[in-house]
Design a protein around this nucleic acid. Sequence first.
DNA 1: TCCGAAATGCTAACTGTTAGTGTTACGGTC
DNA 2: GACCGTAACACTAACAGTTAGCATTTCGGA
Lengths: 212, 212
Amino acid sequence: MTAPPGRRERKKAATRQKIADTALRLFLERGYDAVGIRDVAAEADVAVTTLFSHFASKEALVFEQDDEFERRLTRAVTDRAAHEPLVPALRHEVEALVRHCTGDDAGPTWHLIDETPALRAYEESMRLRHAESLAAAMTADARLTPTPTACRTIARFVIDAYSLARDADDPDAALDETFRMIEAAWEAARSSPRAAAAGPRPATPRGRPARG
Amino acid sequence: MTAPPGRRERKKAATRQKIADTALRLFLERGYDAVGIRDVAAEADVAVTTLFSHFASKEALVFEQDDEFERRLTRAVTDRAAHEPLVPALRHEVEALVRHCTGDDAGPTWHLIDETPALRAYEESMRLRHAESLAAAMTADARLTPTPTACRTIARFVIDAYSLARDADDPDAALDETFRMIEAAWEAARSSPRAAAAGPRPATPRGRPARG
DNA sequence: TCCGAAATGCTAACTGTTAGTGTTACGGTC
DNA sequence: GACCGTAACACTAACAGTTAGCATTTCGGA
């Protein structure tokens, strides 16, 4: 299915990479707001239109490989061992993600995001997407009984735990605290009369589908 | 402290109101994206700069009196009876807010927001602000013992409950479910060893202050 | 070899937003 | 009532992100 990439696709990937690298370098050198799209395009030696054919927006230049976040949390749900409980698996993954952000080896990217309001807002706007994706994975997991609404709630909760821990003075303590609350909420959802009475849920989610 | 407003302030308020009304009318007539700032300014017979001196952004034209949301939730915390428990008080307020949005008398404003991705994103970006405001009120409440982190978590949870209920097919059921989870999480935070051992918290919040 | 499609480029515009700079109308003071 | 400071407003011009339209190159496959 994945044939060896031809010259064309290699060139395209190279262009994209060059744009992303240039953008990150300039942003770190001069600050996000002080660097314009036209600066990035010029420095990367591409046209502005080419830049926008690779990245949907200026913010996307920073969050290029952000799908990884979504993938890792989703996999924490789907790839966990047969009877491994959900919440600890999620916590384990969130811990790793937080360490990846707050660690020194994370590179200065996180610092850039942390200090740029526009990027924080953008990331914030992706939280719903991530939460919805995680909720979908949970809802699709036949081992879980709570309703789609409960899955959505817990999913947002987990994303919140991530961002709260990142911002906390003591990430470990914050994670500890929030995940204790998540565990309790999850237990409440599992033992809810609604979930218990309904038995195994239908495969199709009930709620209004997410927009945007 | 509040002297009878002079002509000046009345004129200012009138201008602001005229802009907001015109904007809402045009947005509803032609759709949010199809109406430009310059259209609104022209139709309201003001300069673009005047418009921006009253409203910080195009989105703000729709969310003009949004502080009410923040105020109502905060008051649900501070103005509740001496020993009234927190979560039911919050739930009561959220229920009222959801009814206000999903009811027919809410006017078409909510519909507009609901169907415009840009407005949804903007509202999403205000959720952190609202949550932080609510969390601050909770943290400042001497009757509560959980830590600032726990307050932040619950606050975000409450805001999520609001938005989940609004989007749900059955808002009442969704509220029921999410608030059962909130109650459980809150109980877990209250009985946490950290909170219990620490006793009454210091008045100053510990976490890194919110940015943006 | 040749055709079609994809990648890229150039131009020009549109849209939200702001800085700079005047002008007018109001409120308080003498 | 005259006067002055200031807040509200307008006008111009620009900046920055984004996109449409169209030309051009470059590759992949027939």
